[in-house]
């Protein structure tokens, strides 16, 4: 199983970005790149080559699902697994997100102390399939 090392986190809200960085890097020990928009993610994903991308759903301009679509258009990025982050959702919405090609959905608000465990579990499930 490939180990999860590099995570790209895409989120428009600066506070949450900062907490997520702590949660993933200081607590989880991952190598993290933060992006403040879908566009920035599309620009820098090729260089960073993340193992996993965490995408906030609701962002101005390019939202999460649109960013995912754009990622899928680029053959160099199309294979990178993506999980969405969103405020508590209905089961039907989760299904819809998965139908778009996300490997999972992480509920917000997240607990900074356990976010890394959640991400790791998602990764293992994804890899195990």
């Amino acid at each position: 199983m490939t180990e999860l090392k590099r995570i790209m986190y895409v989120e428009d809200e600066p506070d949450i970005r900062a907490v997520a960085e702590l949660a993933l890097s200081a607590v989880g020990g991952f190598e993290v790149q933060l992006c403040e928009s879908g566009e920035q993610a599309l620009d820098s994903a090729e260089a960073f080559q993340p193992d996993l991308i965490l995408l906030d759903v609701m962002m101005p301009r390019l939202d999460g699902p649109e960013t995912l679509q754009a990622l899928r258009q680029n053959p160099l990025l199309a294979g990178i697994p993506v999980a969405f982050m969103t405020a508590k959702v209905q089961p039907s919405e989760v299904e819809a997100y998965k139908a778009l090609g996300a490997i999972d959905v992480i509920a917000k608000p997240f607990d900074p102390m356990t976010l890394s465990d959640t991400v790791r579990a998602i990764w293992q499930r994804h890899r195990g399939e």
Partner: peptide, 20 residues
């Protein structure tokens, strides 16, 4: 929506619920 998603992360559970 943003507030509901972020408040809980900082420990403001009641605020998050109300915002939601």
């Amino acid at each position: 929506h943003r507030l509901a998603g972020s408040a809980g992360t900082f420990g403001f559970q009641a605020l998050g619920r109300q915002a939601r």
